[in-house]
């Protein structure tokens, strides 16, 4: 599987994303700099990693979502290729309008880092097919602005369409409907606050994130 990781100034999970993809796919992803305007040819998958792009200044993900590479990412998304945004990557995708809703300051106001219990709300997607038959996972979270918010109408729609992919077992940030990860209508773009790339190794964070990358590998 040919993949790419988009790197913004302030991204800090880019190496983790790189290593997880390399581990699962056997092929090192291309690292694409935010000032580039084109993506490598023939990409099967794009990952937007976590971190504090542009220092989280203005709004988390706001400036990254307007950076030079994003038109190419949006165009690639339109072809139906899978794109995953994790943590700050989720915020960037939401700010880009590629995903519904917005991520606000945690309800408890503090940064939260913990190994979060999650449930798989929809395993019938290209991101989660390998989780079929599994409901409870533990995947680390680490964020200050993960409080998912959307208006009632949107919530009703994404609930009805099966676009909610992960929910928190114990809501850490005030997200509506305990939402930890959502997908777009087409089913090719997903954003999630938990870090699956930090859960691919027994000596670090467990292995509950592996199936996510395996699902993508299977669908590519």
């Amino acid at each position: 599987m040919k993949s790419a990781v988009i790197v913004f100034p302030g991204s800090n999970c880019d190496r983790d994303a790189h290593d997880a993809l390399k581990r699962v796919t056997g092929q090192a992803p291309a690292m694409v700099w935010h000032q580039d305007t084109t993506l490598p040819e023939g990409l099967d998958f794009i990952m937007i990693p976590g971190g504090f792009s542009y220092g989280d200044y203005l709004r988390c993900g706001a400036m990254a979502s307007r950076s030079a590479i994003m038109p190419a990412v949006i165009a690639h998304a339109a072809t139906g290729a899978p794109i995953l945004g994790v943590c700050n990557g989720f915020q960037i995708l939401a700010e880009s309008g590629l995903l519904p809703g917005a991520l606000m300051r945690n309800a408890g106001l503090n940064f939260v880092c913990e190994k979060a219990p999650l449930t798989v709300a929809n395993s019938n997607t290209r991101f989660t097919s390998a989780y079929a038959g599994r409901s409870d996972l533990t995947i680390p979270i680490a964020h200050h602005d993960g409080n998912y918010n959307a208006d009632e109408e949107t919530l009703e729609r994404i609930e009805g369409e099966g676009q909610i992919i992960f929910r928190y077992g114990r809501n850490p940030n005030g997200s509506v409907h305990d939402i930890a990860g959502v997908m777009n209508e087409n089913g090719n773009i997903m954003g999630m606050m938990p870090h699956p790339e930090r859960a691919v190794d027994v000596n670090h964070g467990g292995t509950d994130g592996l199936a996510l990358f395996e699902s993508l590998l299977g669908s590519a």
Binding site: L58, A62, R66, A94, E95, G101, A102, N149
Partner: peptide, 9 residues
Amino acid sequence: AKLLSNPVI
């Protein structure tokens, strides 16, 4: 509209 605010919230 383009950057300084997020129309969703």
